[in-house]
Nucleic acid binder design. Structure first.
Lengths: 337, 337
DNA sequence: CTGACGGGTGTTATCGCTAACATCATCGGT
DNA sequence: ACCGATGATGTTAGCGATAACACCCGTCAG
């Protein structure tokens, strides 16, 4: 058995078997209209018989286009970005595009530029950058204008096509929900201030307070970790006037819950807490966490749509799309004591 | 300004500028030894001046090889798989390989086979399949032998190259830790039984009990969710003889913690709990969770190593690599009341 | 002094595909 | 019955790289 590596069948092999020219095979593959039905069937049969699979490299070489989308994302397992990425990969796969992910350790301009370059080397059809903070957004200036680009969770001020969760609305709803439960004001534990998501949530929170003529307490700044939430919570737990807290994500809320618990302040009896993200386990925090749920699948779909629009039409209207999240009520909110 | 789309510079453009043939440019690019230093510099300068970037499609066409690695993973945001994937993308990127991720909604044979086919269409150099349960592992039979393949978290019984966390050791350590704290036995809330990770943890747990002549209680079967852990916990909380629980992951443990809390059984005073995974927020559960931490980065590195070995050497010894996890002690374990 | 050798370089063929054009029936309208 | 339009197919020329081989030269052993 000296078979060894018989090369994969190529278009000409299919053509020979079907008794047509390779060009006709190409036409069948690309659903060109001017092919007789009978010929089409014969070619299809030959393709199947040989197990022929088109060589994408050859096609890309001649057309100058690939079916690859590059994604630049941070190397983190934060729930939001991870969900988004996963949803995007699925959506792109269904649309017949492969997704190449370039991970970046830190979201600085240099790293992102390098990741973008790697994708350009691969001649991707377009790029999606998950650029949730300002240093990441700055890096977008380096991306050449002719490369289709969509930013996710990026800078709302910048004029690149952008898809993002409507942070403002989510935060507004969360805060209003707490006010309507009877709290005179709501404290806010914020994510890192250079993240647009965090900034948007701060704005929504403030807008809600102002609209209801509630006092606006100082923002308690943190990062996204439960550790930071715990620290913030320790401080808030010591202040008896704090009866309602809106945390910028569920992990922060988790830390707050623990700090409250340790201090003997019961949730929701003494203090109400609302989070953001609706991580799968939020329902099993103590107590089950009321939170804001973004629709990551929708964000992914919109992102893909915007990107493919640019890919096919060349020019784009540089639009932005915003996906409204929804408040999920559980048991961490109650009236003030 | 009718510039429009001037095509990207090709090798011949570089050659012309440097005053050499395109072949010499190719040699410089591929670090071929027989190029005079002076020529090499001239070519490098021309490359830089034109901003030339090699066309991977053209190279792939003639060499028949790509620099792409396909990964098949489930479309989930489970912490373990997500961490692994992220770590792998980073490792591959550093090695100069692009990673194309094919997400699969469910881990059945058909879906996985389809994802593998999509990767084959792209002529990937090799494939990594995260195949944590038996139906996923079954799908591997369809992968042609000549395609480099590494399985992660897959079936230890199957003879494909495999990298996995040493579930047995982790579970053994966790269980032993509880026994040494003084508990007469340890109950186990298991992940889905068709997952190899879950099965391996059950085995390690049982082995520890048997080795210490402890009674082996029935396994409480669940899936990976906090909801299932909560349900299991409700049952266990009602049984006064239960003083120690090893949960198959941290989310299950979270559910158990909540159930215990609701029933008034204090952790670790009345009941001790250990998890698995060390999710970032585990430190902020109530109480901070003692758990087992796998080294996902190490798994990713080994996986990439094994795959590239196959890619370059053709044949492989079909090895398996196991990465030992480490017990992280926090505050959810104490002596029995 | 000469021929073999090997380093440095160029020339040509080729990978598998699509684009563009060429060819050849067939067909309806005058 | 002729003609241009149209449909179905074939032919040819690249896309941008690498592989294989040819070539020119200097060096060195015989």
């Amino acid at each position: 058995m000296e078979q060894k590596t018989t090369r994969d069948p190529a278009m000409t092999d299919v053509a020979r078997l079907a008794g047509v020219s390779h060009q006709t095979v190409s036409r069948v593959l690309n659903d060109h209209p001017n092919v007789r039905e009978q010929t089409r069937l014969r070619v299809r049969a030959a393709i199947k018989e040989l197990g022929y699979r088109p060589n994408r490299a050859a096609r890309a070489l001649v057309t100058g286009k690939t079916q690859l989308i590059g994604v630049v994302a941070q190397n983190s397992t934060l729930y939001g970005p991870a969900s988004l990425l996963s949803a995007f990969e699925e959506a792109a796969g269904e649309a017949g595009f492969a997704v190449s992910v370039g991970r970046v350790k830190v979201l600085d301009r240099e790293s992102i530029a390098a990741a973008v370059e790697r994708h350009r080397d691969q001649r991707v059809a377009g790029i999606v950058v998950i650029a949730p903070n300002s240093s990441a957004a700055d890096a977008l200036a380096d991306v050449p204008a002719e490369l289709p680009l969509v930013t996710v969770d990026g800078d709302p001020e910048r004029s690149t096509p952008l898809v993002t969760v409507d942070q403002g609305v989510g935060a507004y709803d969360a805060t209003t929900h707490l006010l309507q439960a009877g709290h005179s004001t709501v404290w806010h534990v914020s994510g890192p201030t250079d993240w647009f998501d965090a900034a948007g949530r701060v704005q929504g929170w403030r807008r809600a307070l102002e609209l209801h003529n509630a006092e606006v307490p100082p923002v308690v700044a943190a990062d996204w970790t439960a550790a930071a939430g715990y620290k913030a919570g320790q401080m808030l737990a010591r202040m008896p006037e704090v009866t309602a807290v809106f945390a910028s994500n569920d992990h922060l809320a988790l830390g707050v819950l623990r700090a409250m618990h340790e201090r003997g302040r019961r949730v929701p009896h003494d203090v109400s807490v609302v989070g953001f993200d609706d991580v799968p386990e939020a329902e099993f925090f103590i107590p089950p966490l009321t939170t804001v749920r973004p629709d990551f699948a929708a964000v992914a779909r919109e992102t893909l749509g915007l990107l493919l629009e640019q890919v096919s039409e060349g020019e784009s209207t540089r639009p932005r799309r915003t996906i409204a999240p929804v408040l999920v009520q559980r048991q961490s909110v109650g009236p003030p004591a």
